[in-house]
Design a protein around this nucleic acid. Structure first.
Length: 664
DNA sequence: GTGTGACAATTTTTT
DNA sequence: ATTGTCACAC
């Protein structure tokens, strides 16, 4: 690769960043300033200089970002070289480290990762057990507090609220007993093992000599500590981020990590990227004026390189139904041969629940769409079940998974037997699986229950052995196992619509395919299960689907679209009610800013006069962020006024007939 | 032990 | 409005 080609199309600041390969580097990159491009070129430059790809680590926050980064480096260097890089999320980095070294902390290396439903289920049980149902304790309350403390490095034993402390501590004990880790444990223990064990730390330092961290404004204290342990002298660490896009404060992110980077790694080479290549002047002017309202920030502007552009449209809507249909109609009107495609459009929401209404409108109007970050693929019931089967097959001692599938589909091991089983495992200090083999336990059961248990253990043993003998055929084996236990038939019986039936069948099919793909590529079963626990979607799933993108503001960070609709600009939604109560309105403003800067050519904003909440109509006020925009670049429209005008003109009557009918 | 139906609670954002 | 939980009947 010639030196000239590597630097083609980079501006001065970007080149400076690419060329600064040694020592700490801080890249302050505003939205759309070619951040990913700069980072990937920089990695290519390292490789060009002769750095071994195995010595390069890039850490991101989402799998999507990790995949994209790997893919883009892959365009610059040979495939084989790109493959040897370590590009992963903080969480999967920690899994890697822990799968090797967690023995130091007294866990077994085949620990399971407790996610979503399983974790909530456990909490629910514990809440009931401690008689806290009638008190206002929800799994979420406990989880929020547990997560907050783990990420801040504070002990659970010092939680003030007695009830929450008790539940939090037994939650932790329970996880521990089941050799399971939650998301926060991954970071907590990952950092701990690296900090406490010099050998581990040095092994990591020896392997990863050049480290890059993306979206650095979103790191929390734990992640910062981990990086400090991982990166020894000469501190070849490059961090990239933008304080204006810090939107994860609620998850413990510390903007100070990027604002005072030099405190952690002295004398960094600082590069600022301000030229924006993504959006029009119109869009950037609106964005700049809004974000300038935040009091504490690195003062900076996004400089447009695309001058002019269509004004940002601000639409007043009567209600959320009309809003959804208006979005769908507008998209329809702009898609066609020689015009835009569905993939050019994205609709951005503050909350997941808003997405439902939009989905309905899309279906009614037969517009294909893809959902990002709504209900994640891996949170679907059938998927969790099937993964649990696989997990148990891979390692029957995975208590969390085993308990999940104990009686799914029903096989005569009901809650009574399950309780006895759990007691047995606790008393004997063994896994649930081991308890199932205990003759003294089996003797306590009725003849029928005993038979059920023996049947089950025998079935699992066969499946497990088959997997061990032929790990490459895991996909087939799984499918055969599902057939053997009649899983699909049971699952289908609880489906209401044929659509649901298809979806579930499809989901399971996808899972089997993904598994087969993974093992064919030479990944172990454990690796597949890890990625399933940490990923939101199977690798390529999302990009393959075509259509309009429906996505939350949080999930949209880092992405861009030709045309963006940012809907629901109302008090209580953006800014969210809770942020006003908690005094985090600045973060909501940054969220608004992130949303605006996703748009390349055209931005539509809308707010409603009324909105349905819990089936009831409620009045809404326009967001307080609206007056903060630069109205030189905004065109205000009112849907009802517009409709009346259309109604009086004859030509367009038919085109909008459907919409008008809605209003009447 | 399993399956059905009425009732209640739920909505911030993600790995 | 949807989803899950609980009580009751088989």
């Amino acid at each position: 690769m010639g030196r000239g080609s590597l630097f083609d199309g980079l501006n001065r600041a970007q080149r400076e960043a690419v060329e600064a390969t040694e020592g700490p580097v801080l890249i302050l990159a505003g939205a759309g300033t070619g951040k990913t491009r700069t980072v990937t070129y920089r990695m290519a430059r390292l490789l060009q200089k002769g750095v071994d790809p195995a010595n390069i680590l890039a850490v991101t926050f989402t799998n999507k970002a990790a995949n994209e980064m790997r893919e883009r480096v892959g365009r610059l260097v040979r495939k084989k070289v790109a493959k040897a890089l370590t590009v992963c999320t903080f969480h999967s980095l920690c899994v890697r480290i822990l799968r090797q070294h967690i023995g130091w902390l007294g866990y077994k290396t085949n620990f399971t990762i407790a996610v979503g439903g399983d974790r909530d289920g456990l909490l629910r049980q514990l809440i009931v057990k401690h008689g806290a149902t009638k008190e206002k304790v929800s799994p979420n309350d406990v989880m929020t507090e547990v997560s907050r403390r783990k990420n801040a490095g504070l002990p659970l034993g010092e939680i003030e609220d007695d009830l929450i402390r008790t539940i939090a501590m037994s939650y932790q004990k329970e996880l521990r007993a089941r050799n399971a880790l939650d998301f926060d444990d991954l970071l907590l223990l990952g950092e701990k093992v690296v900090r406490e064990h010099r050998d581990v730390r040095d092994a990591c330092r020896d392997q990863w000599r050049y480290v890059t961290v993306d979206e650095f404004q979103d790191t929390n204290g734990l992640q910062m500590n981990l990086m400090q342990e991982l990166v020894g002298a000469p501190h070849n660490i490059c961090v990239v981020g933008d304080d204006d896009q810090s939107i994860y404060g609620w998850r413990g992110a510390q903007v100070e990590n990027i604002l005072s980077f030099e405190k952690f790694f002295p004398n960094p080479h600082v590069v600022t990227l301000e030229d924006n290549y993504r959006s029009t002047e119109a869009i950037l002017s609106v964005a700049n004026k809004v974000i300038a309202c935040n009091p504490t920030r690195h003062e900076k502007l996004l400089n447009p390189t695309i001058m002019g552009g269509e004004k940002v449209v601000l639409m007043a809507m009567p209600g959320d139904d009309e809003e959804a249909n208006w979005v769908a109609d507008t998209i329809k009107g702009q898609v066609g041969p020689g015009q835009r495609t569905l993939e050019d459009f994205a609709v951005l929401f503050r909350t997941n629940t808003q997405i439902r209404r939009m989905e309905l409108a899309m279906r009614e109007q037969k517009i294909p769409y893809r959902l990002v970050g709504a209900q994640s693929f891996y949170d679907r019931r059938e998927v969790r079940d099937v993964l649990a089967f696989l997990q148990v097959g891979a390692n029957p001692e995975s208590d969390v998974a085993l308990l999940r599938i104990l009686n799914a589909p029903p096989r005569g091991i009901g809650s009574g037997t399950a309780t006895l089983l759990l007691e047995q495992s606790r008393e004997a200090g063994t896994s649930v699986w081991a308890a199932m083999w205990d003759e003294r336990f089996l003797a306590q059961l009725s003849g029928k229950a005993e038979g059920s248990v023996r049947n089950f253990t025998e079935q699992i043993t066969r499946f497990s052995e088959a997997l061990r003998e032929g790990p490459k055929e895991a996909g087939d084996l799984l499918q055969r196992f599902l057939k053997e236990i009649d899983y699909m038939e049971w699952m289908m019986r609880s489906c209401k619509t044929s659509e649901e039936t298809d979806q579930r069948r499809e989901a399971v099919g996808e899972l089997v395919t993904a598994l087969s793909d993974s093992t064919t590529k030479g990944h172990s079963l454990q690796e597949y299960l890890d990625s399933a626990a940490l990923d939101k979607e199977p690798e390529d799933d999302l990009d393959k689907k075509s259509g309009v993108t429906l996505i939350t503001l949080h999930a949209a960070k880092g992405l861009e679209y030709l045309v963006v609709f940012l809907v629901g600009l109302e008090e209580g939604i953006l800014p969210h009610q809770r942020s006003m109560e908690e005094g985090t309105k600045d973060e909501e403003r940054r969220l608004f800013y992130v949303g605006i800067t996703r748009a390349k050519e055209m931005l539509y904003l809308s707010y409603c006069g009324t909105r349905k909440k819990w089936g009831q109509l409620e009045r809404c006020e326009p967001s307080c962020f609206i007056p903060e925009m630069d109205f030189d670049w905004v065109e205000e429209q009112d849907f009802e006024v517009m409709m009346n005008e259309e109604a009086s003109g004859d030509e367009l009557k038919d085109a909008f007939g459907g919409l008008r009918a809605l209003l009447e």
